[in-house]
């Protein structure tokens, strides 16, 4: 593994990042030492604040009498490295007025369909771009590109989630524009992506009514981490035994603050509420950012 930036798990492929970083940055992933140089994305984190106390001799009772052993207090978050990258991504997003949404769900909830419709409906008003995460294939990124919006695929290989480092690399190629909205479609998985901060403004959980109303209880970490839940495929409700109220109640048990919107990406029902939420979140983040608002494509919406 690469100890400098940790990107050497060997399986991750980022479109346009194929072991060749295009700019002053080439490495082989089997090698343990390589150099990266990025604009916004530094790899030297070794000086992050780490409370290290040098323990002289075994400081605790479980290592008595071992002459040379010593205890080293680390107190470091296991995901500390990811969180550092996430912090850098977040700083970049904030500096550039980019609203980043991390879309999470189980496979088959209709994430890509929802995203494609969202893009088609909003691309006149907003600058948009997409990072697609899947284990394999570039199918989803191709579906997004058909809408005319730029998209980049990350294949995680054996990995079950996107991490902040992959997203940082993808951004070098994608270069999302100032004031834009960046959608990150995570790997379809309700477990692991909950733990990995990508630097996003919000996690958006998508749950479809064909999946069962108790999913929030079965996968509580994800629904706890999300700020909003889109209940998708509501056009199918007449054919299913799905109790919407119960589903929402379960989600609130896990996360009392979660906002729930009912939508159908196929018929378009309820999608306007999602767009309102998206516009409002974006504008909240752009308060006081005259540099970005002055050139805003959606200026007319600001004054609504």
């Amino acid at each position: 593994m690469c100890t400098t930036c940790g990107c050497g798990t060997g399986e991750v492929q980022i479109e346009g990042h194929d072991h060749h970083h295009g700019h002053a940055h080439s490495h082989t992933h089997d090698d343990s030492d390589h150099e990266h140089s990025h604009d916004h994305h530094h790899h030297e984190h070794s000086e992050q604040s780490q409370d290290i106390h040098y323990g002289t001799g075994p400081a605790h009772a479980h290592a008595p009498g071992l002459s040379q052993s010593r205890m080293v207090e680390i107190e470091q978050n296991i995901l500390g490295k990811n969180d550092e990258y996430a912090k850098e991504n977040r700083r970049y997003f904030t500096d550039n007025g980019i609203l980043t949404l991390n879309l999470v769900s189980s496979p088959g909830s209709g994430k890509t369909t929802l995203l494609t419709r969202t893009i088609n409906d909003l691309k006149q008003d907003l600058l948009l771009s997409v990072i697609e995460g899947d284990q394999q294939t570039t199918h989803d990124a191709e579906r997004i590109r058909e809408t005319g919006v730029s998209a980049i695929q990350i294949n995680t290989g054996k990995g079950c989630h996107l991490d902040a480092h992959m997203v940082g690399h993808a951004m070098e190629n994608l270069k999302p524009e100032k004031g834009s909205v960046l959608f990150v479609e995570n790997v379809g998985n309700l477990v692991c992506p909950a733990a990995f901060d990508l630097g996003e403004a919000h996690k958006v959980a998508i749950l479809s009514v064909t999946e069962g109303e108790d999913k929030a209880l079965k996968y509580p970490d994800m629904f706890f981490a999300a700020d909003i839940m889109l209940l998708n495929k509501i056009d199918l409700l007449p054919y299913l035994e799905f109790n919407v109220e119960k589903c929402i109640e379960y989600a609130r048990r896990v996360n009392p603050d979660i906002q729930v919107l009912q939508v159908s990406a196929t018929t378009g029902e309820g999608m306007d509420t999602w767009y309102q939420w998206l516009q409002a979140s974006r504008q909240m983040r752009l308060i006081g950012r005259a540099d970005i608002l002055s050139t805003d494509k959606s200026q007319k919406l600001v004054s609504v």
């Binding site: 205890m71 080293v72 207090e73 680390i74 107190e75 470091q76 296991i78």
Partner: peptide
């Protein structure tokens, strides 16, 4: 919820 999501390396015993 105020605690319970910790994931931390507390300490190492080293030579």
């Amino acid at each position: 919820v105020s605690s319970g999501d910790e994931m931390k390396i507390k300490e190492l015993e080293v030579d």
